[in-house]
Design a binder for these strands. Sequence first.
DNA 1: TGTACATCAGTGAACGCGCGTTCACTGATGTAC
DNA 2: TGTACATCAGTGAACGCGCGTTCACTGATGTAC
Lengths: 215, 215
Amino acid sequence: VAAPRTARAVARAELTRAILDRASAQLGEVGPAALSVRQVARELEMASSAVYRYFPSRDELLTALLVRAFDAMGEAVEQGAAAADPDWARAHPHEYALAYGSPVPGYVAPTDTVAAATRVPAALLAVMRDAQLAGRPLGATGRPVGEAERAAVAPISAFTDPPLEPERTVRAVAVWATLFGHVSLELFGHTQNAVLDHDVHFAALVDQLADDVGV
Amino acid sequence: VAAPRTARAVARAELTRAILDRASAQLGEVGPAALSVRQVARELEMASSAVYRYFPSRDELLTALLVRAFDAMGEAVEQGAAAADPDWARAHPHEYALAYGSPVPGYVAPTDTVAAATRVPAALLAVMRDAQLAGRPLGATGRPVGEAERAAVAPISAFTDPPLEPERTVRAVAVWATLFGHVSLELFGHTQNAVLDHDVHFAALVDQLADDVGV
DNA sequence: TGTACATCAGTGAACGCGCGTTCACTGATGTAC
DNA sequence: TGTACATCAGTGAACGCGCGTTCACTGATGTAC
């Protein structure tokens, strides 16, 4: 990093991180809608106005948290493959909810979040493309993919290089939705008293999906 | 209904509904965390304190909305089978988010919401049980279901009468998660610029899932 | 190396705002005789 | 059918609270000569 590491710059970087950390913790307690600049400042024992030296508004603080969440999850998945997904989400339920839960009303994620948000699906698509290059067939029998459907998911097919075959693309989307659905259902409490052992259940699901998809 | 339909009772029922309607609309604009008793009252042109004659607190109002959302969706699904799911969700995005999105921090859904929340998965399980009774085999090949997994989903198997075979139960959960995942991804905006035609894509998905599951 | 000035971090008071909830009240509706 | 009393709906003021953001300020850190 070419920036001069003056004492000021060091202090600034550290405090920026501290603010994000406290804000992130608060997210878990009260949710994104109730995230409060004043409360963050209070917990850091500084004047609330001081936070504005670091983030010009509450929304920008939220954006920074959002990018951070997507990036952290993307990195976890890139390193550990799909199975890492629920582990990360369980360890960071509030970040997961911010990224993949219901949108925060009145808050529009700026476009700089897109790159971070794409990492997780991108990792999945890369695995599918590798299977295609290696010539591994899809595991389960699927319906033929019609022209309309092919067109509907064309941007996803075109995401990898070389492009994914439409059959694989359709499967990839289904797999992504299934994983996402499971993690969300578990995290948001909809499987309480229904699924008794989430680890066992999720592991079996991942194995099944891997079979289906030929990886 | 055995209750005496005095003018008062009629007025009360109507205003109760009006409050719920306004609150429901507000949910879509500002989200559950920012739902405001005062704002609802303002839109109905009544004193904010008057609302308390109908709902003793903000949380009870939220609970009523939650039960309503689950019930409405349950009814839509019971009548129209699984495919109705995204239609309902698209028409009522805020209710869907309340029911299936990230939990509202600090709000704990009381146990009277459970019955309503169960309707949608119950409808799915009923379809699976009928297929089992009719002797229709599962469509796609699946991994054998181990003992641990069987135990993990035992409460779900036991939900229907007669109980679902473990293989079918596991599939049912996967299907439910996949449907839920797709609807949530679409509704929360994660497939923008990726899936171009959600109707086509969802229809194909439902067909594929029906194949897999033998219905 | 030392000095003069510019930049930045952090403070504390203040702004205007909306919130949930309570309370004493007035007037209308319902009920018992 | 008419009257006396009890119940309920709705009002408006008030409570105490926390919020995002601004502003003029003090004092510390950095930079150019």
